[in-house]
Design a protein around this nucleic acid. Structure first.
Length: 128
DNA sequence: CCTGTGACTTTGG
DNA sequence: ACCAAAGCCACAG
């Protein structure tokens, strides 16, 4: 990305991350770029990422993109579904690493596989 | 070009 | 409140 200025596809105040505008990269790569910016100890949802990329109904695609990123450097464990449930835990090396990593970052849980979304939710474009 | 695939989300019973 | 069904959409074959 090389364009400067405010976000064109989201209404997050002060967002300067134009991951969706001016990009020759695929939707997958843009999704990865967003995930890479999730702060430690925070989580976000598939829907939020998709909406931020200007594709409101592409939440599923985001999850799909993450699947391709497992094993890489991306903090894919910080992405949960809209209820805070770790629906992607099955795609990790072992089903527990997702929760383990979150716990080690200080994220609290309301259930075995459900994080306290209200307490840790991060929206794409927010300050880290 | 058409079809299948899903780490999702919303809706209706 | 719980489950099933139907939208959803980028990407690969």
């Amino acid at each position: 990305m090389s364009v400067s200025g405010p976000c064109l596809s989201c209404d997050t105040p002060g967002c300067t991350m134009q991951a969706h505008s001016d990009s020759d990269e695929s939707f997958f790569e843009r999704a990865w770029a967003v995930v890479a910016q999730i702060p430690v100890g925070r989580v976000t949802t598939y829907g939020d990422i998709a909406a931020h990329l200007g594709r409101r109904g592409a939440a599923r695609i985001v999850g799909w993109a993450l699947k391709d990123a497992v094993g890489g450097d991306l903090p894919c464990h910080r992405v949960v579904n809209r209820n805070g449930v770790l629906t992607g835990r099955r795609h990790f090396e072992t089903p527990h690493v997702m929760a383990e990593r979150l716990r080690s970052e200080g994220v609290t849980f309301v259930a075995e596989d459900q994080v306290d979304l209200d307490a840790h939710r991060w929206r794409p474009g927010e300050a880290e």
